[in-house]
Design a protein around this nucleic acid. Sequence first.
RNA 1: GGAUCUGUGGUGGAAUUGGUAUACACGCCACACUCAAAAUGUGGUGUCAAUAGACAUCUGAGUUCAAAUCUCAGCAGAUCCA
Length: 807
Amino acid sequence: MSNSLYSFAEIEPKWQKYWEKNKTFKTKIDKSKPKYYILDMFPYPSGNGLHVGHPEGYTASDIVSRYKRMKGFNVLHPMGFDAFGLPAETYAIQTGTHPKITTENNIKNFTRQLKMFGFSYDWDRKINTTDPKYYKWTQWIFLQLYKKGLVYEKETPVWWCEGLKSVLANEEVVNGKSERGDYPVKRVMLKQWMLKITKYADRLLEGLDKLDWPESVKEMQRNWIGRSEGAEVIFSVDQREEKIKVFTTRSDTLFGATYMVLAPEHPLVEKITTDEYKEEVENYKKQAMTKSDLVRTELEKDKTGIFTGGYAINPVNNQKIPIWISDYVLWGYGTGAIMAVPAHDQRDYEFAKKFEIKIIQVINGGDIDKESYEGDGIHINSGFLNDLNKEDAISKMNSWLEENNYGKAQVNYKLRDWLFSRQRYWGEPIPLYKDEAGKIYPMKESELPLKLPETEKYKPAGAGKSPLANIREWVEFEDNDGKKYFRETHTMPQWAGSNWYYLRYISPDSESRLVDENDEKYWMPVDFYIGGAEHAVLHLLYARFWHKVLFDIGAVSTDEPFQKLLNQGLILGTDGEKMSKSRRNVVNPDDVIKEFGADSLRIYEMFMGPIERPKPWSTKGLGGSHRFLNRIWRLYIADNGELNPNIKDEKSSEEFEKEFHKTVKIVGEHIEETRFNTAISQMMVFVNTGYKENILNREMMTKFIQLVSPFAPHIAEELWEKMGIAENLTYSSWPVYNKLKLVEDTIEYPVMINGKMRSKVVVNADDDNDKIKEIVLNDSRIQKFIEGKKIFKFLVIPKKIVTVVIK
RNA sequence: GGAUCUGUGGUGGAAUUGGUAUACACGCCACACUCAAAAUGUGGUGUCAAUAGACAUCUGAGUUCAAAUCUCAGCAGAUCCA
């Protein structure tokens, strides 16, 4: 159906080979040029190959790369693979194929596909996170974190699925069952490695202000970090030594605290529970362990809880208040305990109503018989806070707490430390080991990389244990001192490799450092980073965290890694739904390239709509983009294969020349603004105009090829060659437009009367307002409307519109 | 429930950031080429009315000489968070 006039099937491989052979995109430091580092989020090389969503962002970054080269920048534009991950391991468990082999094959396939698009990557810088030469440095960074005291071990629950004999991630657990196989899952307590990202919370928050990122992504990160100012309050436990610390943003409501709630996992629960309640509490704890945090904190859900039999003392009035446990309080969030003020918190209110706990109103307002009141107001029933408003009451209470050693003002973060252990085989081994007494030792940097051992058993070794635990000869070793040591068997999460890959591209072969010092200073920061919005929080936050640590130890010279960020929108199926195998609406780029060529696919994906918006696929629309390339081709090449005889050294018409300069202006500006769809539509206008012209000035037509080249590089190279130009297109200078050509001698003004468009008048560009008014009032159409009416206002908005108000 | 974003022809989307609403493309219609079709080229295409004109940017109000654009209220959808 794609009746092509130009043979993309020959042209595209021809130029891809040419670029590869000539190393056209090889990048070196060149201090005579400004640098530009433009980065794609590197893909996980899945067995399915590329989908049409990948090339959307990659084409956008390729257009900018090619444009910047022509603008005289030294451009670094690399690609690599984030190749550790679950699918290869699952496949290994099923088939016995080593993940290394699967990964190698997939990378080959991905590379083949990426090359078919003609992306201008410097392939000599390709990286692969599973290469020991690469993960040596991932492990090295981990050791630096360890040395800085940012690594610690903590007992935390993980999801264990007996049916799958595997530990599952939160996302893999749906309604207390495994997403795959629907087996029950349970919480298992396990010692795991944590990274103290919370230590960097403030800097991660402040750093956002300087970044040229979408506001939505910055906002998401701010919410994720979740800084809140409040107070720590210390409650003592009735008849016991222990204290309970809570964090609250509403210390002013302390007089209304009528009970406390501990997370079921809170270690104090066991101590304070009286014999009478022991059994119930134990049962409740077991139940809570099966629920995910998401389910537990759902607002609408029915509140559950159990009284422990213990009491705490409210420090402000020495009242005994009951201590409950409930799953709506999470362990690992804040202090795992809350003071409950049912009168002024909705969840506490529902809880208190259900279990008939006392509700004391301490702020005037609302109707406490019906619902909690969370607004501001005058404090009542609050001793020394009475008559104060919220703000004043908070500050007075915080001073009181501090003076009396019952707490202090405190900043709290929603951000939690980063759980860094995975009970998997296909990940970076953690370079730590323990002796028989359990003492932890970091490996020496000179011993890195700690390679993954070969094995044929990829299944986990048992509840919460990694497959590596099966390989005794790897785990146990004797050091020179003759003592026995045990390696850590957990591996790093997939984020680890992707956390710093942008640095490795800068000097992929450096053996002495993770990134060469001089090269790093030249290339960093990444000027422009393009990728999916799904990484708005985790990847982009973790990478910023590591980067700041590297900055602190002097390994990098910038405080932030990614200056500008763009999220491309999802490409949906023709049905407007997310592409998925089960919906059978997946479009395969291999098929598209076979039928229409890579240039057509590139142009189409850029022309679909604004890059950052989600948009549905249209096969017809793709045909239109292909037709556009054919029209370009025919504008240059006649049916006999020779150059179009209209292309000559004579001057083109005034109009066509004007359109050309306008096109140069718009295409350049719109690339800078990443508005590729409108850049393309302007090129279409130029081509449409060109079809009506008899004289296509050779110089203009040459420059137009340059405008096309970032978008459709193959056809551009071919036409460039057919025009007989020897200069290297990739490094030719981007055309400059002549401003004077765009200045009009005359201006056509639309004339509005009482807000309605009534006529148009043409005036000379240098006519003053009086002259314009004269022309307008003499216009016959205008006269018809203003006849017998009084002119109230007469406005000329320069170069825009004339507006008349009559009555 | 919260945060952020979006809402324009039959469809994807433009609109110089408050100034002629619907650029460009898809689809559809007509004409040319053709024995015919495809491809290609040219023209038309918001709705009602057919000279004029009236009405149209999710709904309703407001600001303004002028609103798709700004403000408020509501409705619908998307993403993230709870």
